[in-house]
Structures are given as C-alpha cells and as structure tokens.
Design a protein around this nucleic acid. Structure first.
Lengths: 89, 89
DNA sequence: ACCCTGATTAGACATAACGCTAAATAGCGT
DNA sequence: ACGCTATTTAGCGTTATGTCTAATCAGGGT
C-alpha cells in the first residue's frame, strides 16, 4: 500500500480526471459519472482504487455517496517526485 | 503517449528506484541491475518503459548502454500533480 | 573469424487491469 | 413491506503487465 497504491491510482487518465473534478469541490458518484462515457460500474471500480490509495475520502449522504479530494496524499506523491529531482542528500 | 506513459512508468516501484539511482548520475544497465533481485531481461523491460516515457535517455558506450535521468519529463509530471492541488486554474 | 561480455528480444505463463451487462445492496419515502 | 433511486458487487472476456529462461544481437579484442 501507501505510495505504490497512490502512483498506481494516478496512472489512469480517468482517475486523474476524477481528481481534477473533485478539486472544484465534493461530488457524488453520479455527478462524477456524468463527465465520462464509461459505465457506472466501471467508474465505481476507478473510484475504489482512488479510495484505496486514500486520494479521495467518501461520505454517505442519504442515498448518494459523496467523494472528496484528499490533498494531503497528493502532497505525498508530489514530495516523492521532488525527491527524484532535487539535488540534496 | 506523453503524460499517460509517464504516470504509467512511475507506477512501478522498481522503475521509481531506477530513477532514484540515476539521480546520482548516469549508470549502465548492468550497474543498475546490481541493485535489484530481478533478472536482467525483466529489468530491460522496465528500462524500456522508462525510455518510452522519456524519463530516461540512452547512450551506447562500447558494449554497454548508459542510462541518464531526464529531469525535464519529471518536471512535467510534477506540474501535472501541482495542477491537481493548486487553487488557481 | 571467433569468442566473450553486455544487453535486448522471443516465448511462455500467471496474474491483474479494464471494460461491459446483469444482479445485488443501501437508504429513503410512502 | 414495497418500490424508487443511487451505487456497488459479481461474472465474464479481452488485453496488458510482470516475471522467468533461453535465444539472439551488438561491440570489442585476440
């Protein structure tokens, strides 16, 4: 888990697009789905990978499920990439 | 290709480790291989994905092949992640 | 030309990813 | 309890990934 799951999750364009949409604010699974041509079950699997990587957090609201972006995990990935580029150490 | 190939390439721990090793300076395929338990053919496939993503550049030197880190592509990935986190747009 | 060393390609295999449709689940309202 | 809506899980087929061993290619030296 951890950083591996994060990079794995980031490696699919649809999942990065989900993150980009969630940057604007929380959205339900259905609202997110409107932005894709994929079936909802397919998207559900993508959501799940983002959740496993903790890139998104989930909140149930009535019959809907709201996804939130978790920026702190994104910062972890960012830091990891920075470490590959920087001169220190 | 482009950014997708870059994130794909980054999604495997061995490939990120290759990049980390190359950060210290260029290395031959054989030198890189000493740091892994994988067979050389397996590593060769990983090198190839890094090359396709242009995260590394290749230079033949006699009978050896020297791999160099390409930091500019890393910056592209960094910029892409930053765009997912920042407030502007 | 031959051989040695370094590296990749070919072939095989197991596992996982990705997409779908159809079925199951969870919560709300009546 | 029933039905409605929102979402996920199950099952399936196809394609891609990751690993290996064995074979091949490329360059240099004798």
């Amino acid at each position: 888990m951890g950083i591996n799951a994060v990079f794995e999750a980031l490696s699919h364009p649809a999942r990065r697009k989900v993150l980009a949409l969630l940057k604007q604010g929380p959205m339900t699974a259905g609202e997110l789905a409107e932005h894709f041509a994929f079936s909802k079950p397919t998207l559900s699997v993508h959501f799940n990978k983002l959740k496993e990587a903790e890139l998104v957090a989930v909140e149930r609201r009535g019959t809907s499920i709201v996804y939130h972006l978790n920026t702190s995990i994104l910062e972890g990935a960012l830091a990891s990439l920075l470490r590959l580029k920087e001169n220190d150490e």
